[in-house]
Amino acid sequence: MTQYVCLLLWVIAATIYSCAPKPYAATNKIYRQQAKQYASILKAEPTPIPASGAPIPASWIGTTNFNMRKPNYVIIHHTAQGSCDTTFNTFTLPRTQVSAHYVVCKDGTITQMLNDYLRAWHAGVSKWGNVTDMNSCSIGIELDNNGLTPFQPQQINSLLVLLDTLKHRYNIPAANFIGHGDIAPGRKVDPSAWFPWQQLSEKGFGLWYGDTSKVILPVDFNSRQALRIVGYDTRDTSAVIKAFKRHYIPVDSTNSSSLDEGQKKILFTLMQQSE
């Protein structure tokens, strides 16, 4: 009798769950439809490209040596919104034209919103090193935070687990874990000066520096050139210095667009790691 009651309760619970409203059922259906469309594109056979004066091959020849393109960067953002639910809504409205692969809520919950191999719209107009289309080679991670307060410990702990998974899954170099503000200086400031970059670096995600008191700067040290070697787009030097400080010297993440000698030593150390 007890087993029967337990089974009956389980059936009732399952029925209630299956009938419960699913707020993103409609957009999940659209996701599957769009993924199916891209799958059909991948399955399409190559077609000959006619060139003037050149013979057209009788058939196509498929190579046997290929796999999926993989992401090589991870870009970290803060949502600048009030809650994860608000962000989920934003990322499921076509008119917003923004998205990310993952959203990490304050309580540490990780929600994946897009397959890692697909291109999210999270980076916008951005540049890092010679890469001018960051969306095509990166994974975007959004942290539920308004940019004005510290990040929750459980949120950072979950982020570290996610980053470790991605790093090993795609063999992403430590230097390629960066922030939105790094790739879009002057336009974006996330994930804010509150973000614990040093803590991440200690786990192998992103660059950091040690004791720089004994560092000797070269006589011809050029801060702008060093920032470019690290990866920054230096067309707006003032904006880049502010972005650099926000990431590596958050205690001085002011509007100052100059570097003192100690800060130049930090930059020099990071430049050496990037070369």
Score class of each variant (00 low, 15 high):
Pro48Glu: 00
Glu142Pro: 00
Glu142Lys: 03
Ile172Leu: 13
Ser138Met: 08
Asn176Leu: 10
Asp85Lys: 09
His101Ala: 11
Thr109Lys: 15
His168Asn: 15
Gly129Arg: 04
Asn130Arg: 02
Ile178Gln: 07
Met68Pro: 05
Ala123Glu: 01
Phe66Cys: 10
Val131Phe: 08
Leu159Val: 11
Thr79Pro: 12
Leu118Ala: 13
Ile141Met: 09
Arg69His: 02
Gly181Glu: 02
Val103Gln: 01
Ala58Asp: 14
Ser136Lys: 07
Ser158Thr: 03
Ala120Tyr: 12
Ile110Tyr: 01
Leu166Lys: 15
Ala174His: 10
Thr109Met: 13
Trp60Lys: 12
Thr92Asp: 04
Ser52Cys: 15
Asn146Met: 03
Ala80Met: 01
Ile75Val: 14
Arg69Ala: 10
Phe91Pro: 00
Val104Trp: 07
Cys137Gln: 08
Ile139Leu: 15
Pro94Tyr: 03
Lys70Asp: 05
Thr63Arg: 15
Ile49Gln: 07
Pro71Thr: 12
Asn130Ser: 04
Asn72Ile: 14
Pro150Tyr: 10
Pro55Phe: 01
Met113Thr: 01
Ala120Arg: 03
Glu45Thr: 02
Leu118Thr: 05
Asn89Asp: 08
Cys105Asp: 09
Pro173Thr: 03
Thr64His: 12
Ile76Met: 12
Leu166Ser: 15
Ala54Gly: 07
Gln81Glu: 01
Ile49Trp: 00
Thr132His: 04
Tyr38Ser: 06
Pro55Ala: 03
His77Asn: 09
Thr132Asn: 00
Thr47Glu: 10
Ile56Asp: 03
Asp107Val: 11
Gly147Trp: 00
Val125Ile: 14
Asp107Gly: 14
Ser52Asn: 15
Gln97Tyr: 01
His168Met: 15
Ala174Gly: 10
Cys105Gly: 08
Ser52His: 14
Asp164Arg: 12
Asp85Trp: 12
Val161Tyr: 01
Leu159Asn: 09
Gly53Pro: 15
Arg119Gln: 11
Pro46Tyr: 02
Val98Asn: 04
Gly53Glu: 04
Asp116Asn: 13
His180Trp: 12
Thr109Leu: 09
Val131Leu: 03
Ile139Ser: 14
Ile75Ser: 09
Thr64Pro: 02
Arg119His: 05
Asn72Met: 05
Thr64Ser: 11
Ser52Tyr: 11
Pro173His: 01
Ser138Lys: 05
Pro153Leu: 14
Ser59Leu: 11
Ile178Leu: 10
Asp144Tyr: 13
Ala44Cys: 08
Cys105Arg: 07
Pro94Asn: 06
Gly108Glu: 03
Arg169Asp: 11
Thr132Cys: 00
Pro46Glu: 02
Phe88Asn: 01
Leu162Met: 05
Asn157Asp: 02
Ile49Cys: 09
Lys70Gln: 09
Val131Glu: 07
His101Met: 09
